[in-house]
Write a protein that binds this DNA or RNA. Structure first.
Lengths: 249, 249
DNA sequence: AAAAACCATTTGTCAGACATTTGAAGTTGT
DNA sequence: ACAACTTCAAATGTCTGACAAATGGTTTTT
């Protein structure tokens, strides 16, 4: 097993170079899933570096879920299968950090999320399972119960939309949307939902579920567009109220 | 600066625990962008571990682009701003690995990609800049030139679609779509585009560009749907031809 | 006052050692 | 012959101590 070194070694971070070399081997198929990497000692010899350096490289790969390590006689580092579950997690943390650190405004995040979600509803109307529809109905019921905290309401909202997205029956779509839906939740949490606005949202969710149940993708799309518009209206109201409270500064 | 340890320490990988503690501090805002982390020696004291262990933790975070390190007197580890550029990169590698290692079939990946792309075209028709439209036209022109390798044709295809997506003027959408578009390129590369199929694709691209230029989102959506259908047809032909060549096994 | 030399701080790397886990080979008892 | 136990070797996890290299600040010299 031989790893390629990049031609331009302008990078003097050895552990990064080694990590990149191994990652490239994984990506281009030189190392396949569940294959065992050489032991740390062998990697030391191959790259001509010390064990701590090799270990730092392996930890970089482990942080990206590209490999897993196992102790013991038959242990070592093994190439991970990138599961959809792990990809969900990475997608969500990346999206969350991106939104929080770049101060993406609510409108932009919302627009992106609903635009992609509308790409799913037509498929969802055709393919959703009875189970997914039941989940949507259950979440709608939960949302209509009084005394729910804003956080619980938002969490139910996320569950509803994930069921809607999963209804498309396309795992790649679900994976992509997971990040978008979850990452916008912290922004949604900043909106205080009045009893009346909750009623309106529940009604819109009901319209979506009805359309999905009837297999009417067009109606579901319209309902989702209405929900998007209403969400933006709510955000606008919240911002106006906040501005009124703090007239200057 | 104090880091929280998780209550259930069922994990006996110290470097992972430390990395998680610091990452949580970054996510929940305890550490803000460009803030300097304690030096490695200080972290050793705080967590009661040795320097290699702390370093492995820091390398994990560096692998996720959460921190950057700098040598020298005023050096150290600093919290990174998660730029859209870096997020693109992570999104693309994750998506690529996911598609290659889970053997997602062409139809599923294509469906997801075009579904999300259709979510952009309506916005793109309204907002695209003259620059983005020019990029689309330039790529179409390149695609129509004979003697192009399949790889170059696919690369131009990616550039065209990225310009189309960027036309929506929503960086979050661009970030999400980057992964979907780039990750499907390796699958696209497996299709050998005949001269006739290239002509058809260029014509469809032209229809899309025309609709975008006219601001007609509906027409652009129809054209993109046609492109999606045609791509799937091509894939089906390639598969049929391959099956005919290898009748058994 | 400007340039050079020096220094302290911090990360990058190395060598060697010990602890811990874990499967496999060998041993023993029935 | 088979099952249970013991031992062992391989591999990762961690620690100690040290030196190298980079880098900004400080001091000295011109």
């Amino acid at each position: 097993m031989v790893f390629m070194k990049t031609d331009l070694e302008m990078d003097r971070d050895l552990s990064k170079q080694i990590a990149d070399a191994i990652r490239n081997s994984i990506i281009d198929g030189g190392l396949i899933v569940d294959q065992r990497l050489p032991s740390e000692a062998e990697l030391c010899d191959q790259f001509g570096v010390s064990r701590p350096t090799v270990r730092e490289a392996l930890k970089r790969l482990a942080a990206q879920n590209l490999i897993r390590t196992q102790r013991g006689a038959t242990g070592g580092a093994f190439v991970n299968r990138m599961s959809f579950e792990e990809a969900y997690g990475q997608q969500i943390t990346t999206s969350t950090l991106l939104l929080s650190m770049n101060e993406v405004d609510f409108e932009t995040a919302c627009e992106a999320r609903y635009a992609m979600e509308r790409a799913c509803v037509a498929l969802s109307a055709q393919r959703r399972t009875a189970d997914q529809l039941a989940t949507m109905r259950a979440e709608i019921h939960r949302q209509s119960q009084p005394g729910l905290t804003d956080e619980a309401f938002c969490a139910s909202d996320v569950a509803f939309h994930r069921a809607l997205v999963d209804g498309a029956g396309n795992p790649v779509l679900s994976y992509q949307l997971a990040g978008a839906v979850e990452a916008t939740q912290p922004l949604m949490n900043m909106i205080t939902f009045s009893a009346r606005s909750r009623e309106a949202i529940v009604a819109l969710h009901g319209r979506i579920a009805d359309a999905i149940e009837a297999g009417d993708g067009g109606a579901a799309d319209v309902a989702l567009a209405d929900l998007s518009t209403y969400t933006l209206t709510l955000a606008e109201q919240v911002r106006a109220a906040r501005a009124a409270r703090l007239p200057q500064n």
